[in-house]
Computed example of a mutant assay.
Amino acid sequence: MPIYLSSHHLKMDEELCFFNQDTLVIKAPKKTPLILRMVVLLFTMACGVYICLVCLKQINPNKTMIKFLNIKVIDYDNESCPDPHLEQWEIPYVHYPKPRTFERNECACNPVRYFAILSMQRSGSGWFETLLNNHTNVSSNGEIFSIPDRRRNVSSILKNMDKVYNLDWFSSASRNECSAAVGFKWMLNQGLMENHEEIVKYFKKRGVSAIFLFRRNLLRRMISVHANSYDKEAKQLNGTHKSHVHSPLEAQILAKYKPKLNATLLIPELKQDEETAAKATQYFKTTRHIVLYYEDVINNRTKLNEVQKFLGLPYRELKSRQVKIHTTPLSNQIENWEDVQKTLKGTSYESFLADYQVSSLALL
């Protein structure tokens, strides 16, 4: 009997195959888009490259570790030279410089402390610095910013300080690679006050300790300033000018000059000096610092022990060859003594008129 198939059945016949009594349905495969094939290929290649790199790293595992360790040593000098005796607060003030001009060799792990003597002219800072340099472990490099070009701007100031604290500054006070404390002397009128904000930041960042040295009797400082200015012109010592002397004879010659002070400007000038010193200590109050007075250091030598402790130095008996210039009573040092006396009596500066005894081996 003939079987008639409709158009519907014929269409299904194109998509389905019948085998015996079991029906096997096979759908015609759809064509895979070209973009999808490319994505799969690129993914496969990327995986292959990654697997190769992992295998190469496993072959030489030490290379990466060596690089990491080297970076750690460079970034953390204090950790590369551990000192079990250091207290926690001392760590920011202990340094291990790496000079460019020489090698520290066996002293590479000897700690170095940075300091700066902040003072005013004729306040005994030169004498004080010779005491520090008498210590075998100290290098104080003098008044480095007395040269205007070195303090022409903040960048120049910071650059010169870096040179000092990296141990690349050479002067007659320079020690050797085993210096335990290094610094310099800085007068308040040598760019310090004008740039105090940047300098305070530098001190705190580099761990620099400030040593303030002032003079209680500002009248005596004023006499010394005038006498020193006069000698710059007169050159009383065989045609040469000397701010500091090393023999009683030289001191006697320089002490012959008696300045005449302006009585009208006397109190304003003393007040200005007083305010400048107070302002400086206020500016640097957030830094690690110590405040000393010339008269106290002369009359109480235990003050020098305090300084050595402040700098973390072993104690030494410190000496100076400098000789004090003005040793006679104030009435013999000022030409118009009576005017000065009359001006200061009854004021807060009257105490400056009093005389006191100091060692003849100290500098004025």
Score class of each variant (00 low, 15 high):
residue 95 H to V: 01
residue 264 T to S: 12
residue 175 R to Y: 01
residue 189 N to D: 12
residue 54 V to M: 09
residue 181 A to K: 05
residue 67 K to Q: 10
residue 162 D to M: 05
residue 67 K to N: 11
residue 72 K to M: 14
residue 129 E to L: 07
residue 243 S to D: 07
residue 199 I to S: 02
residue 98 K to A: 01
residue 60 N to I: 13
residue 220 R to M: 05
residue 36 L to T: 12
residue 244 H to G: 08
residue 92 P to R: 07
residue 350 E to S: 06
residue 283 Y to E: 10
residue 131 L to Q: 04
residue 254 L to E: 12
residue 277 A to P: 10
residue 77 D to L: 09
residue 309 K to I: 08
residue 328 T to Q: 10
residue 285 K to S: 15
residue 180 A to G: 06
residue 268 P to H: 02
residue 257 Y to H: 11
residue 11 K to Q: 09
residue 69 L to R: 14
residue 296 D to H: 10
residue 239 G to V: 04
residue 79 E to L: 15
residue 87 E to G: 15
residue 40 V to T: 04
residue 357 Q to E: 13
residue 238 N to P: 03
residue 110 N to W: 09
residue 114 Y to G: 09
residue 332 N to F: 12
residue 35 I to P: 02
residue 107 C to I: 00
residue 87 E to Y: 12
residue 247 S to K: 09
residue 80 S to E: 11
residue 300 N to I: 01
residue 30 K to A: 07
residue 112 V to G: 01
residue 186 W to Y: 15
residue 195 N to W: 10
residue 106 E to D: 13
residue 55 C to T: 06
residue 267 I to G: 04
residue 357 Q to I: 11
residue 323 V to S: 00
residue 294 Y to A: 04
residue 348 S to V: 08
residue 317 E to F: 03
residue 360 S to N: 09
residue 77 D to S: 11
residue 136 T to V: 09
residue 200 V to F: 02
residue 55 C to W: 13
residue 79 E to Y: 13
residue 71 I to S: 08
residue 98 K to D: 00
residue 341 Q to D: 07
residue 186 W to F: 15
residue 166 N to S: 14
residue 125 S to Y: 10
residue 289 H to Q: 10
residue 303 K to D: 04
residue 85 H to I: 06
residue 291 V to H: 05
residue 274 E to D: 12
residue 219 L to W: 05
residue 25 V to C: 08
residue 28 A to V: 10
residue 220 R to N: 07
residue 9 H to P: 00
residue 316 R to W: 04
residue 120 M to K: 05
residue 96 Y to C: 01
residue 122 R to N: 02
